[in-house]
Nucleic acid binder design. Structure first.
Lengths: 217, 217
DNA sequence: CCTAGCCTAACGGTCGTTCATGAAGCTCGG
DNA sequence: CCGAGCTTCATGAACGACCGTTAGGCTAGG
């Protein structure tokens, strides 16, 4: 009677952990962290609720792992993209491209990371907020440097940073892989919007779109 | 023994309803809808949990009322602002101003309305989504008309609409009344960012900031 | 005296988590 | 080469706490 087998031979070792994470990110994104029960995660992962506690010490730690992994990989992608070009404006364009593409490729992780910070408390919360602040500073610095280099101009770099990151992060809210637009195109559009809002020259915008295109994923 | 008085003489009639709504929007915004219990709302409103059911048939209906009220008042404010000027670009600037100011004045309601749509289901959910879609169409139409009038230009009006609304809505996430910037200034900055990203002429931007300034309460 | 407004108390259900148990694979002395 | 013993991974059942909601009664103003 293989159905009563406690071990599933098609699933080995740490794979179960990945299945739990996949089920959790899907449910957290669709219904929210607090609206998702450990039992529903277990059901989606096709295991018993108690089995989750073999891989995670608590429900909150699944969320924490999800969020920290996302922030780390997002930051890596953006830093790598920035390193490929020289001037501040082009670095900003590259950062916008990587940010948009990564958010489009991982809409659920992006949404959960952004919207469920409030579900955390204590040290994990502070750590994630610090990581987010460091990430925002990447963009703020680029805008300031672009202004110093006379490539960009805006009355308030801090507010511009908020606005730019919010509109690029928002891609995770409406992008659907099957849609009419592909991610590279959406990234292009956001580079144009961002550099436009920072009063960049037309020629610089055209250069930025061309230089960074077709590089991601 | 006035402490055991079931009626609080300092609070008459429907005022209790307003106190419940205030407590609910505060907790929903800080902790999320599902993380907020009826008991915690009652405690914040200084009443017993059962008393809430004298004013609301269910927990969900508090949320629905909050969200629908917000969308209705937001739409009214934006429509009124739009009606005060003529050209599409100026109407868009006015809409941005009203949107930003209303979100800054009601950060909690804005955040709850946006982030807790997923807590709804059935007819209330569809109604709120429809109301949101109608609101977005206001902005999309203005952008299209602005392009027809050669005041604005963008490669993809639909994506631009998403991006613009997201960055303006985001004001509710970071604005704090006690901060260094007041709402009128923040609205100005967003008008400049929005019209800049839509490639408006410098003179048009200056006119838009001047024409719509200092009008909102 | 009626009823609007609020109370106390409790209902059934679900939550996150723990516990004892055991099957399957690995290791290693003989 | 084998089987005892340990580790790994999962199970089913249960715990206490808390959830949204309701039933029924008290109180005071009209």
């Amino acid at each position: 009677m293989p159905d009563s087998d406690p071990r599933d031979p098609t699933r080995d070792g740490v794979e179960t952990r990945a299945v739990i994470e996949e089920a959790a990110v899907d449910l957290f994104a669709r219904r929210g962290y607090h609206a998702t029960s450990m039992r529903s995660i277990a059901a989606a992962a096709d295991i018993q609720p108690a089995a989750i506690y073999h891989w995670f010490p608590a429900k909150e730690s699944i969320l924490i792992q999800l969020q920290n992994d996302f922030m780390e990989r997002l930051t890596d992608a953006v830093r790598t993209g920035m390193a490929r070009v020289e001037s501040p404006a082009l670095k900003l364009a590259a950062a916008v491209r990587e940010h948009v593409v990564y958010h489009g490729l991982h809409t659920r992780e992006a949404f959960v990371t952004d919207s469920e910070i409030r579900a955390l408390s204590g040290e994990p919360r502070e750590a994630l907020l610090a990581s987010r602040d460091r990430y925002q500073d990447l963009f703020r610095s680029l805008i300031s440097e672009g202004m110093d280099a006379d490539e960009l101009n805006t009355p308030d770099p801090a507010v511009a940073t908020y606005a730019i990151l919010l509109q690029c992060t928002g891609v995770a809210l409406w992008f659907q892989p099957g849609g009419a637009l592909d991610l590279d195109r959406i990234a292009d559009l956001h580079i144009e919007l961002v550099l436009g809002s920072l009063r960049a020259e037309d020629s610089l915008i055209a250069e930025a779109v061309g230089l960074t295109a077709g590089r991601s994923n």
